[in-house]
């Protein structure tokens, strides 16, 4: 090959894409497209439930225990209620729970992680000891105890899961912050006299994005499964339709009406699968434990 000085000067793809570009590039792979589509579907179904559901999920709307038909694509339950409407409203409850928990996890996890990693010192020690202790608490059982003492409800479920689900996010954000803090571009910003706030928001944050995106996807998928299990044990909010609760009602009719348990369960599977695929494809797949 002949040496050509022009080759190195030719404008081409930048060797290092920005974190946002990296996420977008990964999202356009097949797994990412499927994951994004499923997640978007969950969000749309949840938001538009009152418009999408054929009937009120509690209304008696047909014959008892009818198998899937054109008018009831997922069949009806023992009281003649439409299962499809139940699944759609159940997805809405799941979405509300997951969004609430996700928001709390995001705010607490990011704050603790960045403060711990960027400030360091005694504050880091205190925050990390607390994080480690909290990480050991079994969330599912804690949620059970809270429901036992305070009664079932979406609000307390969001609070207890939100307050206990962030340690993994905080720890990973902290370790990433620690390694990024010593990198040249952050040092350069600091020498230019950038404030701590500016460095965190403009230099650090964009580089944390892929990791945060991945972990949020995995954590919300876990929350979805916990919410489903609680519903299955009959501990969901009595005022809301829950996919897990629908599946538990179906268990009694497993022999005669498989559709009662199958569709709510499959809806959870699809939603969790979507979040997992999205998380896996968007970021660093090695993060998953």
């Amino acid at each position: 090959m002949s040496f050509s000085p022009d080759a190195s000067l030719k404008p081409s793809e930048p060797a290092v894409a920005t974190p946002g570009q990296q996420i977008m590039r990964r999202l356009t792979r097949p797994a990412g497209v499927i994951g994004a589509t499923l997640t978007l579907a969950l969000i749309c179904v949840g938001l538009l439930a009152p418009f999408l559901a054929p009937t009120d999920p509690r209304a008696i709307d047909g014959p008892s225990l009818s198998p899937p038909t054109a008018s009831h694509p997922m069949g009806t339950d023992a009281l003649g209620r439409d299962v499809l409407s139940g699944v759609i409203y159940g997805a809405r409850t799941s979405l509300i729970t997951v969004s609430g928990v996700g928001l709390l996890v995001f705010l607490i996890g990011i704050t603790v992680g960045i403060v711990s990693g960027y400030r360091g010192g005694w504050l880091d020690d205190v925050l990390m000891r607390g994080t480690e202790a909290l990480q050991v608490l079994p969330r599912f059982f804690l949620a059970l105890v809270v429901v036992a003492y305070f009664g079932p409800g979406t609000d307390r479920l969001v609070i207890v899961l939100g307050l206990t689900s962030w340690p993994l996010l905080a720890r990973v954000v902290r370790s990433q912050t620690l390694s990024l803090r010593r990198r040249d571009f952050i040092e350069a910003a600091r020498t230019q006299g950038a404030s701590g706030y500016r460095i965190v928001v403009h230099e650090l944050w964009p580089n944390l994005l892929p990791t945060v995106f991945t972990l949020m996807g995995l954590l919300t998928a876990q929350v979805l499964l916990i919410e489903a299990s609680l519903g299955f044990l009959g501990l969901s909010d009595p005022d809301a339709v829950s996919l897990g609760y629908l599946a538990s009602e179906g268990q009694r009719f497993l022999r005669v009406a498989w559709w009662l348990a199958a569709f709510p369960g499959l809806a959870i599977l699809v939603a969790v699968l979507g979040l997992n695929l999205l998380a896996d494809s968007a970021g660093d797949a090695t993060l998953r434990a």
């Binding site: 897990g244 599946a247 199958a262 997992n276």
Partner: peptide, 22 residues
């Protein structure tokens, strides 16, 4: 494996009961 990881435990349980027990 991906689907198994995403499935709620009770769905797998009910499916196995339906197939292999009932």
């Amino acid at each position: 494996l991906l689907a198994t990881y995403a499935a709620p435990v009770f769905l797998i349980g009910q499916a196995l009961i339906l197939l292999f027990a009932l």
